[in-house]
Design a protein around this nucleic acid. Structure first.
Lengths: 138, 138
DNA sequence: TCCTACATTGGACAATGTCTAAGTCAAGAA
DNA sequence: TTCTTGACTTAGACATTGTCCAATGTAGGA
């Protein structure tokens, strides 16, 4: 994730304590926090960080293509730092847990020309839903 | 859509003017209104209908499997009456327009067992994003 | 027609996200 | 190093979307 900070500095980002902490919170695999979860974790390291800054920073990371925005349930958006590896999502309908998954076909090529309705299609996301092992036990 | 009303009555639904109007608003192809859009359209025919009733009715239709809930952008959920025909969605990133599309592969079978992480997977949705012809012109 | 359980209403409340004005600070210039 | 400036942060007001509740209304069976 320090790679990330270097890349961003190279793009003219001013490097502040707040941005550094947000980037650190997002470091890891299968990380899919909501903005408020990021804020809570960032506050542990930098208590005075404001909600607005977290929202701003997440928005910038998304625009820069470093983080993906995932909205699985119409509740809070989640932020996925794994933006440089093509993947999809598996979501537990009960507890909301998300896993990154890799699939064996190319869904983009599965959409026939006549079904594109003249759209310039640039992106596809596949979301699987089900019950995770934890919730299945309960 | 009157089929729908019959089906619901058969399931013990009490048939009220409000529910009838909501069902009428949802009639049609490529209909993907937000709850507030449904409310606005329903209000044209039944001015005193309340927001709460629209939300309640939409929620019930979803539970009954007659309408699908679609959250494409983390903004308001949209309601898709085309629940009995398997399909996916093509969304314009600029104006939010949605089209129903049919694809040529089965995305469910594209998720290998080891990528299921012990989940009981029951559902898959594929969302294509791009620019619609209208927005491309502008 | 009458009853009653179910449906509707309006408004308060909750969750998430956006915006603004004022204060603060990172980083280049001198 | 210190100065300067425009970008960044902050707190809190506000907006949007959705949920809940107590009071009232009504569909449909008896």
């Amino acid at each position: 994730m320090s790679d990330l900070l270097e890349r961003l500095r190279g793009r003219g980002w001013r490097l502040t304590a707040q941005r550094r902490v947000v980037a650190e919170v997002l470091d890891g695999d299968h990380v899919h926090y909501t903005a408020d979860e990021v804020h809570a974790r960032a506050s542990e390291r930098l208590p005075e960080i404001s909600r607005a800054t977290v929202y701003n920073t997440l928005g910038e990371l998304v625009l820069l293509g470093e983080v993906l925005e995932v909205s699985t349930d119409g509740r809070a958006k989640r932020y996925d730092p794994n933006a440089h590896h093509d993947h999809h999502h598996l979501v537990c309908s009960q507890c909301g847990t998300i896993r990154d998954v890799h699939i064996e076909s190319d869904p983009m090529s599965a959409l026939p020309e006549p079904e594109r309705f003249g759209f310039e299609v640039s992106e596809v996301s596949v979301t699987y839903r089900g019950t995770c092992p934890n919730c299945a036990r309960a």
